[in-house]
């Protein structure tokens, strides 16, 4: 426990109560002391998907849910939260991003609604009917 002189008279009533100057010491936080991280998924209303909103640190799932409620269910509409350990998330690497390119490739228009033009054909047919 070392003493650190405070420059000005302490203004914080809580600090006066704890007699901060005499209890002050240097604390180092050990690795893992803030526990592991959990990914949080937030459902805004029934019927919506759960959407990833961020992380919390907690020693177990129950506390992770409690912290998630405090952090992500505090201000915005919410009906449900999920948490899962960050270490249990599996993902592709962004280095392989191009494997998804053909999902939106122009040559795949044959499986899009916009890839088919029916009105032109209908109009052409109607015109030919009128002429006949």
């Amino acid at each position: 426990m070392s003493k650190i002189p405070l420059n000005t008279p302490v203004l914080d009533p809580r600090i006066k109560r704890v007699d901060l100057e005499s209890t002050y010491g240097t604390t180092a936080i050990g690795e893992n002391e803030h526990w592991i991280s959990w990914e949080v998924f937030h459902q805004k209303k029934r019927g919506d998907q759960h959407v990833h909103v961020g992380i919390v640190h907690a020693p177990d799932a129950q506390l992770a849910l409690l912290f998630a409620k405090e952090q992500f269910g505090r201000r915005l509409a919410c009906v449900n939260l999920w948490v899962t350990k960050s270490s249990d998330i599996f993902s592709f690497s962004y280095d392989d991003e191009d494997i998804f390119d053909n999902a939106t490739a122009p040559e795949k228009q044959y499986r899009e609604a916009s890839g088919f033009r029916v009105m032109e054909k209908i109009n052409r047919y109607k015109k030919s009917k009128q002429k006949a």
């Binding site: 893992n32 592991i36 990914e39 020693p59 998330i89």
Partner: peptide, 12 residues
Amino acid sequence: MMNPNQKVVIPF
């Protein structure tokens, strides 16, 4: 509350 067997993993 720490579990010494848990490994720290960088969040995603």
